[in-house]
């Protein structure tokens, strides 16, 4: 197990280096930061001066290594627009995004695992059909539309919930549901398929032959094996939610790093974009790593392979 963990951690680190290199070169190729900083009225001399000042005239790999060196020591530079340290801007908002993402994935799991299990217990029954309907609906509705509908119903008509901000827990209710519901169908279908397969397995017959209670057969013996693939998928979805909350954060004006990335992209604020992409990439990498380790714990055969 320790060797397995070490190997996976090393691979994760390499992935982050590659991602940061790619983002750096792509973003510097797609926009000229000197133009952004100078603004529309800047003269050619000003632009040249800015290039020299910020070091944009150097070859791109030199700029990247310079950036990487500082990033490794925690210095991600300064925002071109806000003139604040990027590190502070991100760390101030990252908590909100993580809270929203965590709530959303928990909501998705809390809906999809019971629903998938219920559906698997009686395939093709009315319960199964209802679960399927709920799932397909979640997949079919665009997140932004669903979010807007919730705002109209719960925020405007009934006035139950606040429609924007991040200061109180009630601010998180609608964003959580909007973001989490989108992941529910995939997770539910996978739970259902896994459960149906596991319930037909020999070791479930053994568990029943041992006279164990139906709850023990279902939850101890079946669910643990059925959710192994669900854990892996949930990790990917969690990464997606942390990185993909841009739309939701913007709609609900919940100022996390999703909202910040939207803002930074509009302003071509490259140091901010660069840092946020790296943060999103680390989310994915860390989550995939955690999912692998969790799977190795759930299924003892995995770390042996």
């Amino acid at each position: 197990m320790p060797a397995y963990t070490l190997k996976r951690t090393f691979v994760a680190f390499l992935i982050l280096i590659v991602v940061s290199g790619l983002t750096f070169s792509l973003s510097h190729l797609s926009a000229d930061p000197a133009l952004t900083i100078g603004g529309e009225q800047a003269s050619d001399e000003d632009i040249q001066a800015i290039r020299k000042l910020y070091g944009f005239d150097r070859p791109i790999h030199v700029q990247y290594l310079d950036w990487l060196g500082r990033a490794l020591s925690g210095d991600f530079g300064e925002s071109y627009h806000y003139k604040q340290r990027v590190f502070d801007m991100v760390s101030e908002r990252i908590g909100r995004t993580m809270l929203l993402g965590t709530l959303a994935i928990l909501f998705a799991l809390a809906v999809s695992i019971p629903l998938g299990t219920l559906a698997a217990m009686r395939p093709n029954s009315i319960t199964d059909r209802i679960a399927l309907f709920i799932a397909v609906l979640g997949q079919a509705l665009p997140t932004f539309w669903f979010a807007l509908m919730m705002i109209i119903v719960f925020g405007v008509w009934w006035r139950w919930l606040p429609i924007s901000g991040h200061t109180q827990w009630a601010n998180y209710v609608m964003p959580t549901i909007a973001l989490g519901y989108y992941a529910t169908p995939a997770l539910m279908r996978l739970t259902r398929a896994g459960m149906i397969e596991v319930l037909a397995s020999d070791y479930i017959r053994t568990a029943r032959a041992k006279g164990l209670s139906p709850a023990s057969v279902l939850f101890k013996h079946a669910l643990r094996n059925a959710i192994i693939p669900v854990v892996a998928l949930a990790a990917v979805w969690f990464g997606f939610m942390l990185g993909g909350s841009i739309v939701i954060e913007t709609i609900f004006n919940l100022k996390g790093i999703g909202w910040l990335s939207y803002d930074a992209l509009l302003r071509s604020d490259l140091p901010v974009v660069q840092a946020i992409v790296l943060v999103f990439a680390s989310f994915y990498v860390v989550l995939t790593l955690l999912a692998d380790l969790l799977n190795a714990y759930l299924d003892p055969r995995i770390s042996v392979r």
């Binding site: 020999d202 070791y203 017959r205 053994t206 094996n225 759930l298 299924d299 003892p300």
Partner: peptide
């Protein structure tokens, strides 16, 4: 049972 390879829960 007949199938010792699959009759025990792997987890």
């Amino acid at each position: 049972f007949q199938e010792p390879m699959t009759s025990l829960n792997p987890s």
